[in-house]
């Protein structure tokens, strides 16, 4: 009962505090929204790059071709080397005949060019190797090039690599920005609450005099910060939903090649991160700024 009263009172006080301090509150509110939008956009970018890399999944396949002439013991040695190589999760033998069949299927329009190749197959026997992660393709390629009996190693690492590089760069930037923006937001929230505590310093003194606990006093300021932050995170969520669906998803599909990760698949994570981050910022900012008013 008394707990409930206290909560409702602190809610009312929080709202009053926001109205009394409207300029600062609005500043915290917009700063938070700005930060969440920047960080949110970058995170969604990372999600999409990851999805593209995933789509290029067969890119973590490597083809290795053996020399034209080899005997059983050489074959065994090569299989052994592949099997023992790090990051290899599977491999299959592809005979030159199978390879030619696949090529014909892939290049249906050009079937005529490939006519007659059965008699003089230019392809070689080889292995198709699956690597655990696109990031490790490079390493496996290097390892395979060192194996005796392997003539040629093919991997489309360049594409994957450029995506990976972009992703890592974006990741780095977003982590840096996240730290920076979280710092700035916390700082502004701190000042907002400090201001609010200053305007209410007489009230705080009276609260202490009549025996309110520090917890009760803190609660009303933490509530004030949390109202600002919760509202900010919810507004940011709907803003990013709108921007994403209207701009990103449409831009992706207009290329005709790529499909953006649909918002329905990521909204839960986005909401969780927005609300979580803003609550942490709100609680941290208010607790850090109120302590000086709580001396006995």
């Amino acid at each position: 009962m008394s707990r409930m009263n206290r909560f409702l009172y602190s809610l009312a006080d929080g709202l009053k505090g926001i109205l009394r301090n409207l300029m600062m509150s609005l500043m915290s509110f917009s700063m938070l929204i700005g930060s969440l939008l920047v960080v949110g956009s970058l995170s969604l970018l990372v999600v999409n790059i990851d999805a593209i890399i995933q789509d290029l999944g067969d890119q973590n396949e490597i083809m290795v071709y053996v020399h034209e002439e080899y005997d059983d013991s050489e074959f065994n040695q090569i299989s052994q080397a592949i099997m023992e190589a790090e990051h290899v999760v599977g491999f299959t033998f592809v005979s030159r005949e199978t390879a030619l069949e696949e090529m014909k299927n892939d290049l249906e329009e050009y079937a005529s060019i490939l006519e007659g190749m059965e008699q003089d197959n230019p392809l070689r026997d080889g292995f198709r190797i699956q690597v655990d992660d696109p990031a490790n393709v490079e390493a496996v390629v290097t390892a395979m090039e060192g194996v005796d009996g392997i003539g040629n190693v093919e991997a489309r690492t360049d594409v994957v690599e450029s995506f990976l590089k972009t992703r890592n760069a974006v990741n780095l930037i977003s982590i840096g920005l996240m730290v920076l923006l979280a710092g700035i937001s916390t700082f502004i929230i701190m000042n907002t609450i400090k201001m609010s505590a200053y305007t209410r310093r007489e009230e705080i003194a009276i609260m202490r005099m009549v025996g309110a606990t520090k917890g009760t006093i803190r609660l009303s300021f933490v509530t004030e910060a949390m109202i600002i932050c919760l509202c900010g995170s919810i507004v940011s969520f709907f803003a990013i939903m709108f921007l994403y669906q209207e701009l990103i998803e449409k831009a992706f599909s207009s290329t005709g090649l790529l499909q953006a990760v649909p918002f329905q698949e990521v909204w839960g994570g986005v909401l969780l991160i927005f609300v979580g981050a803003s609550l942490v910022i709100g609680v941290l900012g208010s607790l850090l700024s109120i302590n000086k008013y709580l001396k006995v």
Partner: peptide
């Protein structure tokens, strides 16, 4: 508290202790 009426000033002391 200057922004509160006499009644609110007195009530405030009960309110902060969680009275209904």
């Amino acid at each position: 508290i200057k922004k509160k009426t006499a009644e609110e000033n007195v009530a405030f002391a009960m309110r902060v202790l969680g009275a209904g």
